[in-house]
Simulated scan of single mutants.
Amino acid sequence: MTLLAVSDAATNNLALTQLLDPMYLLQETWLKNAVLPAILAIVFIETGLLFPILPGDSLLFTGGMLAAQENPVVNIWVLVPLVTVVAFLGDQTAYWIGRRIGPALFNKEDTRFFKKSYVTETHEFFEKHGPKTIILARFVPIVRTFMPVLAGVSKMDYRKFVIFDIVGAVLWAGGITTLGYFLGNVPFIRDHIEAIFLLIVFVSILPGIITVGKKLIAKRSAPAVGNDAELASVTENS
């Protein structure tokens, strides 16, 4: 039984590894006969149908790299505009899924894991930080899948969402695919593309993390300061 369990785990890990390996998907499976439709389908599923466990950045980079080969399986002038459009449509789908879910959440009673105030706070967050979040979230795996849903649930202004979602789709889908086309043959970049983008995003949001950290520290120290003041007052009166 133990050997069987180990074998099943190894098989599952191998399947997941292959699923997340765009080079394997696009060159070693039946998808090699439909590279362009496969890339477009995977991008839409990841961004629009709430399925985050798919290759994102690496898929686009690999698509651009394949387009740069001597006998390309896909044309870069077709690939870039199409993945940009599909990335945009995926986010739009997820946004409207969120808009449909939102009213049901507001009608739901508060529980241990869900409170209506969470939705209100999310709405306030997107109204204040939405544009930057929409763009940066594109470059973070899993986050890019659920960000547009949260924007929809919080009923972020749709016009604002569309404008910055277009910018995010162009920079992410079009930009990474283009990078793959020109830099796909550079080993270091090819092997560390997702880590590079995560680092860029982390540096971009670092000021926000510092601000949130300062607020949390201030909230934790506030009761202590209040208790010290109360103790001092009692001491003076006595």
Rank of each mutant, 00 (worst) to 15 (best):
F113C: 11
E70G: 05
F161A: 10
Q69D: 10
N71R: 02
P148G: 11
Q92D: 04
I166M: 11
P72V: 06
D157G: 05
L59I: 04
I166F: 12
V149G: 08
K115Q: 12
D57H: 06
P52W: 03
V143F: 04
P103H: 10
W77C: 07
D57R: 02
V170R: 02
V73F: 00
F161D: 11
T111E: 15
G63K: 11
K108G: 00
I166K: 00
F106Y: 05
A68I: 10
F44I: 07
N75F: 08
K160D: 13
D91C: 12
L105Y: 05
D165G: 15
L171E: 02
I163P: 00
P72H: 08
T120C: 02
W96D: 00
N75C: 03
K108F: 06
A104H: 06
E46S: 04
G152N: 06
N75T: 01
F61D: 06
L49C: 13
I76Y: 05
V85N: 01
E109I: 06
V119L: 15
L54R: 07
A67H: 01
F44D: 11
R112Q: 14
L136I: 14
F106S: 06
I101V: 15
S58N: 00
F114Q: 10
G64V: 06
G90P: 02
M156P: 03
T120L: 07
I101E: 04
A87W: 05
V153K: 03
G168P: 12
F139G: 14
A41H: 11
D157A: 05
V43K: 04
G63P: 14
A68C: 12
I142T: 08
V86A: 00
F106I: 01
N107A: 12
M65D: 12
K128N: 05
V86M: 10
D57N: 11
P141R: 02
N71E: 06
Y118E: 11
T93N: 06
L54A: 09
E121G: 09
G102S: 14
T133K: 02
L54V: 10
F61S: 01
N107W: 01
A38D: 13
Y95P: 14
G56R: 03
L105K: 02
K132Q: 10
